[in-house]
Design a protein around this nucleic acid. Sequence first.
DNA 1: GTGGCGATGTGTACGTTGTCAACATTACCC
DNA 2: GGGTAATGTTGACAACGTACACATCGCCAC
Lengths: 215, 215
Amino acid sequence: MTTADRPYHHGELPEALIDAGLRLSRAGGAAALTLRAVTREAGVSATAAYRHFTDHDHLRRDTARRTRRALADTMLATIAELGTDLPAAETAVQRLRGVGLGYIRFALDEPGWFDLAFSMPDDPTATPDDAPGPFELLMESLDAMVATGVLSPDRRPGAEWACWGSVHGFADLVARGPLRDQERVVVDQLGRNVVEAVIAGVVAGSLDALRGPQA
Amino acid sequence: MTTADRPYHHGELPEALIDAGLRLSRAGGAAALTLRAVTREAGVSATAAYRHFTDHDHLRRDTARRTRRALADTMLATIAELGTDLPAAETAVQRLRGVGLGYIRFALDEPGWFDLAFSMPDDPTATPDDAPGPFELLMESLDAMVATGVLSPDRRPGAEWACWGSVHGFADLVARGPLRDQERVVVDQLGRNVVEAVIAGVVAGSLDALRGPQA
DNA sequence: GTGGCGATGTGTACGTTGTCAACATTACCC
DNA sequence: GGGTAATGTTGACAACGTACACATCGCCAC
């Protein structure tokens, strides 16, 4: 039946394998991304994957990279929803808000992909993506905040880790931790509060300059 | 050689298995906690574990619980180091600081245990621990802050998730993420900044009441 | 054209893992 | 002291990642 079904050479096997990996991890998280399950899904023998990926880990890393792209897309969509026709300073803060809320929304909507995205260290030898990843989007928004005077430069160093850590930790609670299976609305509101707290914590006193002195 | 080495009945197998699990996960994280490796380490056949644990997962959960106890101990030690002979209000904040810094210190010192501690959902059917766990310590410190007027009651709901998420996320970056293998001193300082930012974010304006009006 | 060669996919096999069923050994209680 | 339940062992199975030898195809040189 092999000969009747498909030509001997698949043609697009690497893409097909990654697509299968995305389907499986979407439903079952990183643990579902089994080499054999992926090849089975693609209608190909288990060892065929070794022609295009050195390892099981290699396939996982490449698939994880794709989920990180999906995360970045969710961030960009969230930023767009929040609106960008504002004064530059407000827009910068809004971008940080979009980054954080998009991150949490992604963890809520796609817990399987979120699990995979960060269960796997990005290998440094791979060619960097052309489009900005989640981390780049965060850095951009923080830099914009400094440039527009919302964030004082002496609070900039390390701010990316404070922001990422805070939001990532909450997203992790939602996707894999004690807040999983919690009601969506509640978690959403909690997520908003976390993002606000993060921004307040990072910006600290200098946000007052933007908002005006308000208790 | 089985008869010569040890008596047929081990006597303390459950404890021995968990101890072996702690040793293995300490060095290799959650992935190293293999049922066969654990039984091998305890000098016992693979299926012997099934007399005391229903599952591989059961053994993992029980071992993970122990690592969470170790985390709580680190938190308590850190709180003690920060000093407790202070006005009640300051002590409450100090306790929150100790909770956060202890969490991060634990992730730095025992990344393997930290990985295990939260790679596994706590099963709700188990009998609750007598000693307070990490989460209880966090709740206590936040409640104390409300009681002593450092934290306004309307900021209390959900604050535990904001705090936990923030600190957990940063600790995750340190133990398994891009900040792994970073220089200890740098990360430690970053961790301190994160904890301060978290406290500032959660407490927000009401902290001024404690510290006095200072820019 | 046609031969051959490199790229791609297959089949088989090995070691490891979690788990089950049947069996062996021991502690303990009437 | 003998029976019974608790505890540990052996052997087996399926699924996993992976190595090796082999099969099949696209494509370029002649």
